[in-house]
Amino acid sequence: MKIKIKFFGSFRQRFSREPVEIDLPEGSCVGDVVAPIGERFPGFAQLGYQPLLAVNDCFEKPDKTLEDGDHVNLFPPVHGGATDH
């Protein structure tokens, strides 16, 4: 399924100003976007913390199941609530 990824906060300058699209298998969770994004943007894989994940403009835990066409927004922890690796 096609998932549209958008970067927010300092991620936008560091990785991509434009949204990117990735393919994920059916049944994938939002946490599954981290690995393919890390492959495309190596710096993303080397973050010292977990990014915040939002699906269709709502923060979600990594185990939230995605559906085809979902929009995933990626944030650095801009105001608390970060999770370390």
Partner: peptide
């Protein structure tokens, strides 16, 4: 990351 975001986007970085 939180402080660096204040540098990059200012306090308005928190709006999104």
């Amino acid at each position: 990351p939180a402080v660096w975001d204040l540098h990059i986007n200012g306090t308005c970085g928190v709006l999104s």
